[in-house]
Amino acid sequence: MFIALCLTSAAFAKTCTVDVVNLRWDGGAVRFQSEVVDTVEERAQGLMHRESMARYSGMLFVYDRPQPVAFWMENTLIPLDMLFFDSAGRLQHIHENAVPLDRTSIYGGESIQYVLEINGGMAAKLRIPEGAEIQHPSILNEFAAWPCKEMQ
């Protein structure tokens, strides 16, 4: 069994804060320190112009409703993995190692509400599979796959 950061998903459930994104799947779990972007302006800026990002860090893009989502890497200087989640917080698609400064559209899916960007190569290194579940206070609906039980 692979557990990143040596924590169980039960331990993760006790730390549901806005600056942390928890992921779990059969055989693994990981926690990322995360910035949340939930306005049009913040989402448009994303991780542009940043020269680095800490290893277990990321940016969580939160949309008001499920929708078709596509990203590009214009003005983004570091390779990224993009994890696309539905409204319940289930991972629907992974785009690995998006190329810095590339203007090619990266399509995430039709009904995406959350996107987590992490350092390129981390999804494969951690063996994060499609179907993994995300936990974050932004996922407030009654159908959340992994709801926050305690807010801190």
Rank of each mutant, 00 (worst) to 15 (best):
K14I: 08
K14Y: 07
T15P: 05
C16L: 03
T17P: 03
V18K: 08
D19P: 01
D19G: 09
V20F: 07
V21M: 05
V21F: 00
N22A: 11
R24L: 13
R24H: 12
W25L: 03
G27M: 09
V30H: 05
R31W: 01
R31A: 12
S34C: 10
E35T: 08
E35L: 09
E35N: 13
V36A: 02
V36Y: 00
V36K: 00
D38K: 08
T39N: 05
T39W: 03
T39R: 05
T39G: 04
V40C: 12
E41D: 14
E41H: 14
Q45V: 11
Q45P: 07
Q45T: 08
G46N: 03
L47V: 08
L47Y: 08
L47P: 06
M48R: 15
H49M: 15
H49R: 14
R50I: 12
R50C: 14
R50N: 10
E51F: 13
S52C: 15
S52E: 14
M53N: 06
M53R: 07
M53L: 14
M53H: 06
A54F: 06
A54D: 10
R55Y: 12
R55S: 12
R55T: 12
Y56N: 12
G58E: 00
L60Q: 00
L60A: 02
F61N: 01
V62D: 00
V62R: 00
